[in-house]
Structure formats: C-alpha cells, structure tokens
Amino acid sequence: MSRKFSPLGIIAFIVVLFVISPLLVVIPTSLTSVKYLSFPPIGFSLQWYSKIWDRPEFVDSFLFSLELAALTAVIATLVGTMSGLALHKYRFRGSGTVNGLLLSPLTVPALIIGIAVLLFFTRIGLAGTFTGLLLAHVLISVPYVVRLVLTGLSSFDYTLERAAYIMGAKPLRVFIDITLPILKPAVMSGMIFAFLTSFDNVTVSLFLVSPTTTTLPLAIFSHMQESLDPLVASISALVILLSLVFIIILERVYGLDRLFGSNSHSH
C-alpha cells in the first residue's frame, strides 16, 4: 500500500507540518529588519543577532542554563545508572516497589512538583539557591535515565561478566571493560535526555529561580510576557540549532522512536 499522495499521506503531511511549523518559522523571523513580529518576515538583517549581546540577561541565563543542564546530566546519569544496575542485577524483595517509586515523579505534574519543592525548600532554607534548583532538575531527570538503563540491561548477558571474573578480572575492571561498553548507548542517551530535560524546563524552574539564577527558557518566558519582538526569535533560533545537534546525536545513538517507546512526559 505504498501509493504516493494517498489522502492519508496528505493528512499526515499536514499534521507533521502543523507540529514542525512553529519551529520552522522562528528562523526566518529572526532575520527580519523590522521591530515587530510578522510572517512572512520583512526585509533582511542580522541586527537581532547582534542585539543579543547587548542583553546580558540572555547571555548570562544561557550560560547558566548550560552549566545547570550539564551538571544535572552528569549527576542524574550517575545516580540513575547506579539505580538501574542495582534494580536489574540484584533483584531483591521489593525491587519492583523501588522501581515504581523511582519512576513516580513522572506521574505527578511538573507544576505540582515545582510548587511542592518551592514550599518545602522555603521551609528548609534551600529555596532560591543553586543547590535547590539543581536538586529539582536531578529529580525530574533521574527517572528517564533509570528507564533507559533498565531497557539497556534487559538484554544484558550476565555470563559475560561471570566469564571475566573467572578469567581473574577485578570487579572495577569488569565494570569498565564489559558492563559499561554494553550499556554505553543507554547511558549516553540518558545523559543527553537529562541534559535536554533540564535545559528545556520551565515549569519546575519557574518556582525555584532567583534573580541571580535564571535559566534561559525562563528569561525568554518572562520577556515574552512583557514584549514580543524579533529578539526572542534570534535567541530561539540559536537554541533550536543547538537542540538539533543533541536531537540528531540521540537519533543516531539510540533512536527517537525507542526513546519515546513507552510513555514519557516532560512537562
């Protein structure tokens, strides 16, 4: 049934266009020469790119977001990989419950997690701190890593590890030479996904940032509520290009379809 231009194909094309058009229009809009948003864009200039450098809040929040996302990715990957290994390798009584618990932050809306963390962290003095923000980002990223590592381990052949032990390898060496290479695609995708989860997040960050610790999506969010100008387009275009690099790596290393194979939310 591979007729070209079937009615179904046309509908699918329109829906795909609907989903990607908001990202497609951002790039031409960033090249406009006028001061307001319009599409098709009017004129051509790179002024909105040079104007980014006059706005320290965007440059600073971009660097801050990168730093936060990188730290989140490293910590979440470590913590999540350790848990995944523990759950799969050492099946113990209650490991199913622990697994469910570790994934449970995915079932509660990000907004409610943000509210809960803000109120609780205010009580214990962590609200508005970098540590508080980082912990919250780690919390929402770990479940994805755990799930990816568990999927990666599901076909893992433990006789390989046993063979290495019999040949006299030490546990650390077995882990580095046998376990890690096999887990590498899952761990790497987990790390990239954790990075993107943190880098894209608005809803949880919203409650936890302070004037000195604002993330880029939140800076854009605040700016958009006050004024809509092509400046947001040039910043967004850069973010889209950067995200695209990570998305393509994810697609190559793991495959987006497998990543979204089971239900996963990120809002």
Binding site: V19, I20, S21, P22, L23, L24, V25, V26, T29, L37, F39, L196, F199, D200, N201, V202, P217, I220, F221, M224, L228, V232, A233, S236, V239, I240, S243, L244, F246, I247, L250, E251, L256, D257, L259, F260, S266, H267
Partner: peptide, 18 residues
Amino acid sequence: IAPHLVSVVIRNFGWVIL
C-alpha cells in the same frame, strides 16, 4: 518527536508568530 525536545517556550513563540 523531534520538536518535542525543544523547549515549550520556543514552540509557543513560534505559534505567536503564526
């Protein structure tokens, strides 16, 4: 799937343009 990995703020901004 790919657009889903870009921040919702930016996707919404695209809709504002459209």
